[in-house]
């Protein structure tokens, strides 16, 4: 760092921005990795079937898969219009 730099305002270092961005994206991608490959397709098809019968908003559907020691729990949450 040069003499002149001492007078400049300190900005957040780009390395710490890089680390933060990486931690978020890597954590996100790791959770996706543990899902079976067929999950996104199955999720889409389930939504299509439900949409045939009920007028629903795609945002109102959450799908999750949780792995415990000896079994996996597939959870499908749909908020039906009231």
């Amino acid at each position: 760092m040069s003499f002149i730099d001492y007078f400049r305002s300190k900005k957040t270092s780009s390395a710490s921005v890089a680390k933060e961005r990486l931690q978020i994206i890597v954590a996100h991608e790791r959770t996706q990795r543990s899902q079976p490959d067929y999950l996104p397709a199955m999720q889409q098809e389930l939504i299509e079937v439900i949409k045939k019968y009920v007028a629903i908003d795609e945002d109102k559907i959450t799908v999750s898969l949780e792995n415990t020691n000896n079994c996996s729990v597939f959870e499908l949450n749909i908020t039906l219009p009231g």
Binding site: M1, S13, S14, A15, S16, A18, K19, L22
Partner: peptide
Amino acid sequence: EGEMLSVSD
């Protein structure tokens, strides 16, 4: 200089 990820990062 804070321009590169460190080993520990």
